[in-house]
Simulated scan of single mutants.
Amino acid sequence: MEETMIYTILITLFLVVAVKLMLQTRKQHKNLPPSPPSLPIIGHLHLLKQPIHQSLNNLSQKYGSIMYLRLGLRPALVVSSPSAVEECLTKNDVVFANRPDFYAGRYLSYNNTTLGAARYGDHWRNLRRISTVEILSSTRLNQFRSIRNDEISTLLGRLHRVSSQGFAKVELRSIFFDLTTNVIMRMVAGKRYYGEEVKESCKKQASKFREIMEELFAYTGSAILRDLFPIRQWIDYDGIIKKLVRLGEKIDSFLQELIEEHRIDKDRNTMINHLLALQESQPQYYNQRPDSG
């Protein structure tokens, strides 16, 4: 009986707070684009079926190329025409430059200080400069062309072995994931972590990396649902915050291990080695670590 009363009170409080937040949102955003009818608490989530892009396209056919959706308690703007996209990303790019404060960014991206999670400002511009000049420049990418060629050859060899005895069913999604990840990690750290070609000396580290990736995909999905309903941050009833904290520590430990390896052996043609060299030659730019909170 007491448990029933407690659950009833909690549900009532949840509904009252949710309605209050929705009313505040409506008052703050009076001049919103067209929007489909929404439901309490979940907003427009019930309208988004798989595949998501097709659901959004169907909605935009009815409500226009600029459409307002509410995903849980999070506002979202759906832009589906080239001219509107250009308006948002060129003339008004600064307005749309900031990222939302998501749980994954807090615990897996050093409190939203990585390039993909940082807010627009001096820190983000510095990260963008480093990425553009030192990592993603044509000269730098051309230095790793042999890696890409090698991984593509490995992929073709893998497909040939599977189909050498006749027609065979191949799951391309996992194969392309292996290809992309191996290319990235060989460029970053000089190591392959997926496929039969993983070196014996690297198998333990490769297993750790694959475990991290599996957890990353599993936990970030749960974190996204929590982000859509900020009221859930009051109680970590499913333990997702603790899981994200542990995963963040595991990722940090793994990356530190790679860095220490490169400090000992700096004769590798990798991104880590290049950034370590820059840290020594230009410490005023590459030794600063933003406050991770």
Rank of each mutant, 00 (worst) to 15 (best):
V95R: 02
V95I: 15
F96K: 02
F96Y: 02
A97I: 14
A97S: 13
A97Y: 12
N98L: 06
N98K: 07
F102M: 14
F102D: 01
F102Q: 07
A104D: 00
L108G: 00
L108S: 01
Y110T: 02
Y110I: 00
T113C: 02
T114K: 06
L115T: 13
Y120R: 07
Y120T: 07
H123M: 03
H123K: 02
W124S: 00
W124M: 03
R125N: 02
R125L: 10
N126V: 07
R128P: 02
R128F: 05
R128Q: 06
R129Q: 05
I130D: 05
I130P: 01
I130V: 15
S131R: 09
S131T: 15
V133I: 15
E134H: 15
E134A: 07
L136V: 06
S138I: 10
S138C: 12
S138E: 08
T139Y: 10
N142F: 11
N142G: 13
N142Q: 13
Q143K: 06
Q143W: 02
R145M: 12
S146A: 09
I147K: 01
R148A: 04
N149A: 11
E151L: 10
I152P: 01
L155K: 10
L155Q: 11
G157F: 12
G157V: 11
L159W: 13
R161D: 01
V162C: 08
V162Q: 12
S163D: 03
G166K: 12
F167L: 08
A168I: 08
K169S: 10
K169F: 13
V170F: 09
V170P: 01
E171H: 14
S174N: 07
S174W: 02
S174C: 04
D178G: 07
D178F: 08
L179H: 05
L179F: 08
T180P: 05
T180N: 12
T181R: 12
V183A: 04
V183W: 08
M185L: 14
M185G: 03
M187R: 05
M187F: 09
V188E: 03
A189P: 04
R192M: 06
R192I: 06
Y193D: 00
Y194F: 14
G195V: 09
E196K: 08
E197C: 11
V198Y: 02
